[in-house]
C-alpha cells in the first residue's frame, strides 16, 4: 500500500523537476535569442541597405527586403574609392603587424614566463599596469615622437610599433599559457643543446598553438579595423587603409549609404573568414591540450 502511494509521488516530483529543467532551458534560449538578434540586427540592416537603391534608402518607410535588389552597389562601391589600393595598404599593414606583434609578444612572454632574472616580477607588474593606461594619454607624445622620427604620413608609423613588444595584453595572455608548460621540458631542450630562442621555437611555441592562434586573431582584427592610428598618422589619401577609406563615402552634403554598406560588408568578410578558420583551430587546440593533460 505504502509502495503504491510512494511511487506516484516520486514520479510526480521527478516530473516537476523535468518540467523545471525544460522551463530553465527555454528561458536561457529565449534570452540568447533576443540577445543575438539584437546583435545581428545592425548587421542585417547593413546587408539590406547595401542592396537598396538611393530612393529606397531615403524612403520614409523602412523595409528589410530591398525591391529591386541592386547588386551593382557592390561594383560601384569598389570603384567609388580606390578600394584595391586601400586593400593593399591594409593587407600590408595588417600582415606586418601580425608578424611583428605576434613574434614580439611570443618572445617577451617567454622571458616573463621562463627566464629567471632579478626584478622580473616587478617588471611584469609594470607591464600589467600599462594596460590600465588609456591610449589617449600617450597619443600626443607618441605622435610627436613619430613625427620627429619622420614617420608622419608614412605606413611605418602603423607597422613599426607592432614590433616593439606586441601589446601588454597579448604578452600577458601568452605568458599565462607558457607558465603551464612544464619547466622540465625546457630543461630537457637545454640539455639537448637548444638556446632560449631554440626552446621557444621548437618546444614552447608548438605547445602554445591555441594561445598563439587566439593572440593572432586579436592582432589581426585590431589592426584590420584600426581607424584611429591611420587617421592621425596618414594625410595622403593614397596611403589610407580600408578602415579609414570607408569614411570617403561620407561627405559634407550627403552619404552614399548603400555604397558605404556594400564596401563595409566586403571589408568585414576577411574577419569572418579568419574567425571561422581560427574557431576550428581553437577547438582542435583545446582537444590537443586536453589530451596532454
Amino acid at each position: 500500500m505504502v509502495g503504491r502511494v510512494g511511487i506516484p509521488r516520486q514520479s510526480a516530483s521527478r516530473r516537476t523537476r523535468r518540467m523545471r529543467a525544460i522551463l530553465v532551458k527555454t528561458l536561457v534560449y529565449l534570452v540568447l535569442l533576443v540577445g543575438s538578434s539584437a546583435l545581428l540586427t545592425p548587421f542585417l540592416w547593413m546587408v539590406s541597405t547595401s542592396l537598396k537603391g538611393y530612393d529606397q534608402v531615403v524612403a520614409s518607410k523602412f523595409t528589410w527586403i530591398p525591391k529591386p535588389v541592386v547588386w551593382s552597389n557592390y561594383t560601384r562601391a569598389l570603384e567609388f574609392i580606390p578600394f584595391w589600393r586601400y586593400l593593399g595598404n591594409t593587407v600590408l599593414v595588417t600582415s606586418m603587424c601580425l608578424i611583428g606583434a605576434l613574434s614580439a609578444s611570443a618572445v617577451v612572454a617567454y622571458g616573463f614566463a621562463k627566464l629567471r632574472a632579478p626584478g622580473r616580477t616587478a617588471l611584469f607588474g609594470v607591464l600589467l599596469a600599462s594596460m590600465m593606461l588609456p591610449g589617449q594619454v600617450t597619443m600626443i607624445p607618441v605622435f610627436v615622437l613619430f613625427q620627429r622620427l619622420g614617420w608622419y604620413n608614412n605606413l611605418k608609423a602603423l607597422i613599426i610599433p607592432a614590433f616593439l613588444g606586441g601589446g601588454a595584453f597579448n604578452i600577458f595572455l601568452l605568458r599565462q599559457f607558457y607558465m603551464t608548460i612544464p619547466n622540465e621540458l625546457c630543461d630537457a631542450a637545454k640539455i639537448d643543446g637548444c638556446s632560449n630562442l631554440g626552446i621557444l621555437v621548437r618546444i614552447v611555441a608548438p605547445l602554445s598553438k591555441p594561445a598563439l592562434t587566439a593572440v593572432g586573431v586579436f592582432i589581426f582584427v585590431a589592426n584590420w579595423t584600426d581607424f584611429f592610428s591611420p587617421l592621425i598618422y596618414l594625410s595622403d589619401q593614397e596611403k589610407y587603409t580600408l578602415a579609414l577609406g570607408l569614411r570617403l563615402f561620407q561627405s559634407l552634403h550627403s552619404t552614399e549609404y548603400s555604397l558605404l554598406m556594400a564596401a563595409s560588408i566586403v571589408f568585414s568578410l576577411p574577419i569572418l573568414v579568419v574567425f571561422f578558420l581560427a574557431q576550428r583551430y581553437f577547438i582542435e587546440g583545446v582537444t590537443l591540450t586536453g589530451m596532454k593533460g
Binding site: P182, L185, K190, K292
Partner: peptide, 30 residues
C-alpha cells in the same frame, strides 16, 4: 659552460619527452 658545452645528457624523473614530437624527433632533436 652551458649543458651543451659540457656535453652531458640527462634523463628526467618524469621523462620530459616533448609531447608534440614523435619518438623519432624526440631522439633526433639534439
Amino acid at each position: 659552460l652551458s649543458p651543451k658545452e659540457r656535453n652531458v645528457a640527462m634523463v628526467f624523473q618524469d621523462y620530459a619527452l616533448y609531447p608534440h614530437m614523435r619518438v623519432y624527433d624526440n631522439i633526433a632533436l639534439n
